[in-house]
């Protein structure tokens, strides 16, 4: 269970990214965060694994409060939160398999991790994950030589290698063609169910949110203005989520 309450983030320049945000997310589900550009979707996602530091509120993962964790403890909690990115962020000269293995660096000793001394079990696990994302045959291929959709699936396998409870995805399909988009979204949904994960996805396509999400959060001008299942996402609700900021504030 991930529970966020009263989360507030102000950027150093005074810009308010999040204002009193609260919601909770259940394991085994896909949550889509939708909202106009600049609403605060990225800010919210990056606050959840503390790439950003909100100044107030709570982020409760299991029984661990995350917002105020000191760096060392933060590293341990971060291992439980995987992240995938719009531009994949793989080490392109390395093989797909090596990229997936990066997912377990956080639980290895400093030296073994630095030198890349992975155990047989870790290698086997990475290979299994690559098979699970449909890239078993590409394990030894350079990540840089894969297609966008394949790179994103390597990114997903890397996140899965952390054995996470949560996977955060910031616009994971924004650089992909429709076929790859479908593959990646289906994969994320299946993984959420099979591994009892909380998958949280920033999206700008409402139809994809409707199709794949169990839970939709609508963000507008730093506030949560919609928090319900896809069935409740009426045209009226959509208009509210995508309203120009002033309207939403009075809505």
């Amino acid at each position: 269970m991930l529970t966020v309450s009263h989360l507030t983030k102000t950027y150093p320049n005074g810009k308010r990214g999040l204002i009193d945000v609260g919601f909770s997310i259940a394991p085994g589900s896909v949550t889509a965060i939708i909202g106009p550009s600049g609403a605060g979707k990225t800010t919210l996602l990056r606050s959840l694994n503390r790439l950003l530091t909100p100044e107030a509120g709570e982020i409760q993962l299991g029984n661990q409060e995350m917002r105020q964790l000191p760096p060392r403890a933060l590293r341990l909690v971060r291992r439980q939160i995987g992240m995938i990115f719009q531009d994949y962020n793989l080490i392109e000269p390395l093989s797909a398999l090596e990229n997936v293995l990066h997912g377990c660096l956080g639980r290895k000793s400093l030296a073994a991790g630095m030198l890349g001394l992975y155990t047989k079990e870790e290698k086997k696990q990475a290979l299994t994950l690559l098979e699970e994302v449909g890239l078993g045959d590409y394990a030894l291929q350079k990540a840089g030589s894969l297609s966008g959709g394949q790179k994103q699936r390597v990114g997903i396998a890397r996140a899965m290698m952390q054995a996470p409870q949560v996977i955060l995805c910031d616009e994971p399909i924004a650089s992909l063609d429709p076929a790859s988009t479908h593959t990646v979204m289906t994969l994320l949904k299946d993984l959420a169910i099979q591994h009892d994960l909380m998958v949280i996805i920033n999206l700008h396509q409402v139809d994809l949110a409707r199709e794949f999400a169990d839970h939709i959060l609508g963000v507008n001008a730093g506030r949560i203005v919609f928090d319900d299942g896809p069935a409740a996402l009426s045209d009226e609700a959509l208009a509210h989520i995508y309203a120009a900021p002033e309207e939403a504030a009075y809505g």
């Binding site: 590293r75 992240m83 990066h102 660096l105 956080g106 952390q162």
Partner: peptide, 11 residues
């Protein structure tokens, strides 16, 4: 992307 896996600096 590597920082968020919990990997340390030298890793």
């Amino acid at each position: 992307a590597l920082e968020v896996t919990g990997a340390r600096y030298w890793q």
